[in-house]
Design a protein around this nucleic acid. Structure first.
Lengths: 345, 345
DNA sequence: TTGAAAGCGCTAACAT
DNA sequence: ATGTTAGCGCTTTCAA
């Protein structure tokens, strides 16, 4: 008479126990249709007596409405990525959606397809791609055309539904801040490159060109601040360097430290700026002039765009936000004559 | 004759096009049973011609094997959390599992249940709970007993399958390092509290007691390093303070900065240690003495434990790892007489 | 090696 | 307001 207790309870079990039909149980659960108080009560009693939890797979199969979305990203734990994901998750949760995360480790087709297969094999309503790096770009390119997709990134591109942070404009403004202080030019240490030049570098170059300033060669960094420290030491040897625009705040911290290793003080000898407004940027000594990127909102905007596409409630394909320059203590006018670097220990 | 192109292709479409039965298509896809090369080839051709992607919901319904797990956490973007999640995701991906993330914002039953309902309503094989904070503890408590669960945390507790980092032992060792340098006692700024005292605080207290040192009152911090900075300024006023054990590296950075605001130099005037080995801890000035926590491996170990439970391949319920003290430049013997703090500006 | 038949547990359409 | 009837798109017996 009683259901096998090794097997999870089904709606049929609940219906039997409550003396109603299966659809009535479904109605109680969804709250969509009216059910008489008596039956509703009996159903609820049966549900908790049996610890019934509805099967997501069956629900999705019958209703064709997956209540999950996927996020595809080249990384999840670096500051900007983690914050963006947090924004997506919180917006999704507010709408009753769950977020699946899959990392794409490299831009090679094989690796991208393997990661995408994992995701596309799940029951999802759509995908948000973090197009911050080559794996993200590659993943976006290989998404099936019938899947609702939103790309999140720092530069506008064509053809995709996307939410962006206009990094180029902010980078231009930041570079101009340094030029306005009197620096003859601004050196640049970009974040590890996407295939295309990123918005930060584009904005920097645009500002220098517009000001007729010399455009110095790029210094290639990695995501590790320790590499940036080495770069800082190297920049210290170059007397032309009086201002450095770093691709993000962690790189700026490394560069400042590297300059300090050679006896150069920021901002007295060399001004340094970062990007992102990392939570520790304001705490650094000196506090770092940077650009505040609202990654949390980027994630929220991305999710909203995706929902518009999924529900057909909106045909908006684009959402842009302008990051804000935050001036702190790591920038100052260039010194009359820059200190000579202390030789390596 | 041809399938409605508005509707995604199903296995039946593929079977029809390839001139085989539906189960044969299924066999080709799963690779489980042998299929004649000819039919296999025709099936594969049909699959790509129709851009067929199998329905996850249907597969899970029929096979009862969800290829996803859920992660429940009080936060996702703070360093330890993000790294742990990264470890879970990469281990999961290697086994063909996808990871769903849901945040529990507060420990109140209502909020916890709302978040859990979201997760338990999805097709998942099991759950990993990040039991680092009160929401995590609450979530764990309210998980249904029939769901495979693994808890990840810094202290061992009973009854749950869990992977832990033995924070108490490491904290004790770290505190002893300071006592061995000659400090009369060690002040403590814990991370925001779980209901129970965390392992870091426990280890600190244990070391002081064992050494017969005075146990100073706790300084309540928040997750923000700026609060920690205020605490640093306050500690500067107290001449008894010669060594400070901070609950994590970000708090240590704040405290160091706050002490510096009052003219006190680390480690000359006051030694400061952190916890976690945040990527920026080594770059800070001075480089911070801390405890390296391998969150990435914690996540991997947690996933492995969960798989053991899900597949019944292993009955292991516990996995422990001992974090490692990393001595850098923020600790030194106490000064003969500590400098007097510079008055607030 | 292959196909036919029978579900998996739910929702939706329809009838009452 | 409620029950009956049909699927949703797969996997899994079972026969052949």
């Amino acid at each position: 008479m009683t259901a096998d207790s090794r097997r999870p309870a089904t709606m049929a079990d609940v219906a039997r126990m409550a003396g109603v039909s299966v659809p009535t149980v479904s109605r109680v659960l969804s709250g969509a249709a009216r059910v008489s108080p008596l039956k509703r009560e009996r159903v609820e009693a049966a549900i908790s007596a049996l610890s019934f939890r509805p099967s997501a797979a069956a629900r999705i199969l019958a209703s064709r409405q997956p209540m999950a979305i996927a996020v595809v990203a080249g990384d999840t734990s670096k500051y900007g990525y983690a914050e963006t994901i947090r924004g997506i998750e919180s917006a999704a949760r507010a709408e009753g959606y769950t977020v699946m995360i899959t990392v794409v480790e490299s831009p090679e087709d094989e690796e991208v397809d393997r990661a995408l297969r994992l995701v596309l094999t799940q029951a999802i309503a759509g995908v948000v791609v973090l197009k911050f790096d080559p794996p993200g770009v590659a993943a976006l390119r290989r998404m099936p055309p019938d899947m609702p997709v939103v790309a999140l990134s720092g530069v506008r591109s064509i053809g995709v539904r996307q939410a962006v942070l206009d990094e180029a404009s902010a980078a231009e403004e930041l570079t101009n801040h340094l030029l306005d202080l009197g620096h003859a030019t601004v050196h640049h240490v970009p974040v590890p490159p996407s295939r295309r030049e990123d918005g930060r570098t584009t904005g920097w170059r645009r500002a220098l060109r517009a000001a007729g300033a010399r455009v110095p060669p790029l210094e290639a960094a990695t995501w590790s601040p320790h590499t940036a420290r080495d770069i800082g030491r190297r920049l210290a040897e170059n007397p032309d360097v009086s201002a450095v625009f770093c691709g993000n705040d962690e790189i700026a911290m490394g560069v400042i430290r590297g300059l300090a290793d050679r006896g150069l003080v920021t901002p007295d000898d060399v001004s340094v700026v970062g990007f992102d407004d990392h939570p520790l940027a304001a705490l650094w000594s000196p506090a770092i002039t940077t650009v505040k990127q609202d990654f949390l909102r980027l994630g929220e905007r991305g999710f909203a765009l995706l929902m518009g596409a999924v529900n057909g409630t909106s045909t908006r394909r684009f959402s842009s936000d302008r990051p804000r320059v935050v001036i702190r203590s790591s920038t100052a006018p260039p010194p009359a004559r820059r200190a000579t670097p202390r030789p390596p220990a």
